[in-house]
Design a protein around this nucleic acid. Structure first.
Length: 569
RNA sequence: CGGGGUGUAGCCCAGCGGUAGGGCGCCUGCUUUGGGAGCAGGAAGUCGGGAGUUCGAUUCUCCCCACCCCGACCA
């Protein structure tokens, strides 16, 4: 490609609204152009990278036994009503009407369609297992798009679905996909964490997220440096400090004037926060729920949601709390009737807690579970925090931010049961097909690759996803000798199958060309200039090299190939 | 959805109750060519939209819209 013919322009100034490196650099290098919040055009260079990533994904999916197909983004809403997921996705789903007034949606994912497709094509255990995938545009009306291609509303996504006759087979498909994912991310230059994840309301047993650790990420991962335990914040477990067991004291009131928070309470009574009980009030599918957790811990709403089998969970507001007769700042489960009570298992660790007395400016001391209050549900609903201990090995946990680039789930039989996708086993028995699903955000993966690979001068593309392999800069191209040598070299590169970007601009100063080369960040830079040409040479420099080397004109192609081969390892 | 912020030329921004400016980019010519060159000339704007106040609004007031950031949300 000739630079002079490229439609995209590089920007001299940093876009002021772009906070993350990938967003800033992709705009500056002319890779993407924003159309609306969370909606972007991919300019030619970005599309080339995207296609490369897609092809890496295809190769690994095919190698793992996947078959590619493509399903429509436009779907009847009816299909989503059958599984109840129109409701579940809520405002995150784009909806529209067709000319007949039929309700349609833009698909955020494709379980409904693929399950029906498989239902029509698979009847026997002999047809299983199947792994089907597509690379399609997905639509999610995100509440807050952010960080360029990291969180968008229209996006290129690879989604795969497995269909199996039994759990063992599902596990094989799941493991094959997990391995394919590791291969894909490695080939794209991304060191990823594979974290245990919450499988969601519909999911079955296992779920894992693949994340690029970066502090601009929006997900939180809990890791253990000692063993391999890695889990996202919604799923992570931890062991908490054991409190010494004391003889149970009597429950008695203590005046706590104007004490509303756990920290104020602990300070006022000169006890550790772990000796207090925190009360948190939620609305779960319209029903009030009273949660008790040890004062030094926080509620993990995902765990709570799972414990309650709730589809819509949120914190209650002040009016709802008052309506349920709760005294904010002094609430506890003691003596509380007519409301569902959830107790975190931390409350069974320790005793003689300080708890609210359900009247203003008053608390109890000597509160004990289950002597003084009971629970409808006792479960681990605590948020794992760095500094707590690993549930596997006891080592101190750490926390890191990350961008989620892939997610795999064992779905189980939810979709096959609702949509009637059954098969007959060898004994003629009918069973719902067991499913898994496996997603990769392709555009987000590109953004993550840029986020991971850049320096102060620009992008440092990993060769397998770079839009071109070589950036050939011709300096003083008005010089006939340079023009001739550069044209010849450009043709040689193309003939050798090396994708080259040829900066043939006549009017751009050397500095401009070098800066653009650094900004775009192709793996190998070649400089054809009068100075080098005098010795019959061309300058060659890897994007991260501090010093440039030089090669004879007739050895350039081989030298580029050598460098690319080396960087591919 | 709550909080904060920003909308002025392709990009980055300044400005102001009297009808809009700088830098970059762009066009023409000359000069220049190893890290964002120089000179001369030039084109380019519904000042986000609407209403109001005013003799006069890009500027003040109100409403709306868009975008960004934080939070909530993110099977």
């Amino acid at each position: 490609m000739r630079f002079s013919r490229m439609v995209s322009k590089t920007l001299r100034d940093d876009p002021p609204d772009a906070e993350t490196a990938s967003h800033r650099l992709m705009l500056r290098a002319g890779l993407i152009h924003q159309v609306a919040a969370g909606v972007y055009s991919y300019l030619p260079m970005a599309l080339r990278s995207l296609r490369k990533i897609e092809n890496i994904i295809r190769e690994e999916m095919d190698a793992a036994g996947g078959q590619e197909l493509m399903m429509p983004a436009l779907q009847p809403q009816e299909l989503w009503d059958q599984t109840g997921r129109k409701e579940a996705f809520g405002d995150n789903m784009f909806s529209l009407n067709d000319r007949h007034g039929r309700k349609m949606v833009l698909a955020p994912t494709h379980e409904e369609v693929i399950t029906n497709l498989v239902k029509a094509n698979v009847q026997s255990y002999r047809d299983l297992p199947q792994i089907l995938y597509q690379i399609q545009t997905k639509f999610r009306d995100e509440a807050r798009p952010r960080a360029g291609l990291v969180r968008v509303r229209e996006f290129d996504m690879k989604d795969a679905y497995s269909f199996n006759a039994d759990e063992e087979s599902l596990d094989e498909s799941y493991q094959a996909m997990a391995q394919a994912y590791r291969n894909i991310f490695r080939r794209c230059g991304l060191p990823v964490l594979m974290a245990e994840a919450d499988s969601g309301a519909i999911g079955g047993k296992d779920s894992h997220e693949f994340l690029l650790a970066t502090n601009t990420g929006e997900d939180t991962v809990i890791t253990c440096a000692s063993c391999s335990y890695t889990a996202n914040a919604e799923k992570a477990e931890s062991t908490i400090s054991e409190l010494p067991s004391e003889p149970e004291a009597t429950l008695e009131e203590v005046a706590t004037p104007n004490i509303k928070t756990i920290s104020a309470l602990a300070k006022f009574l000169a006890v550790d926060e772990s000796k207090t009980l925190k009360a948190v009030f939620y609305m779960s599918d319209g029903e009030p729920v009273f949660v008790t957790i040890r004062g030094d811990l926080d509620v993990n709403e995902t765990k709570l949601k799972n414990a309650l089998h709730s589809t819509d969970l949120r914190m209650a507001d002040g009016d709802e709390a008052r309506a349920a007769g709760l005294v904010a700042g002094s609430a506890s489960a003691i003596g509380l009737e007519g409301i569902k009570k959830v107790v975190d298992s931390s409350v069974t660790n320790g005793n003689n807690f300080i708890a609210g007395a359900n009247k203003p400016d008053t608390h109890f001391k000597g509160a004990n579970y289950p002597r003084d209050f009971q629970a409808d549900i006792v479960a681990d609903i605590a948020l794992a925090q760095p500094g707590q201990n690993c549930p596997r090995c006891g080592h101190t946990l750490e926390s890191t931010k990350g961008i989620e680039v892939g997610h795999i789930f064992k779905l189980g039989t939810f979709f096959s049961e609702v949509l009637g996708a059954d098969f007959l086993d060898s004994e003629g028995q009918q069973h719902p097909i067991i499913m898994g699903c496996y997603g990769i955000g392709v555009g987000r993966l590109l953004a993550a690759a840029v986020e991971q690979n850049n320096d102060e001068n620009g992008i440092v593309f990993p060769a397998p996803v770079a839009p071109y392999q070589a950036h050939m800069v011709a300096l003083n191209i008005n010089n006939e000798e340079v023009a001739e040598a550069a044209e010849k070299l450009y043709k040689e590169l193309e003939a050798a199958g090396i994708e080259a970007l040829f900066d043939d601009r006549e009017d751009a100063a050397a500095g401009v060309k070098f800066n653009d080369a650094d900004l775009i960040g192709l793996p190998v830079r070649l400089v054809v200039s009068p100075r080098n040409l005098k010795d019959g040479k061309v300058e060659i420099k890897g994007r991260m090299d501090t010093e440039a080397g030089s090669v004879p004109l007739d050895g350039v192609v081989a030298a580029v190939q050598e460098r690319l081969a080396a960087s591919a390892e």
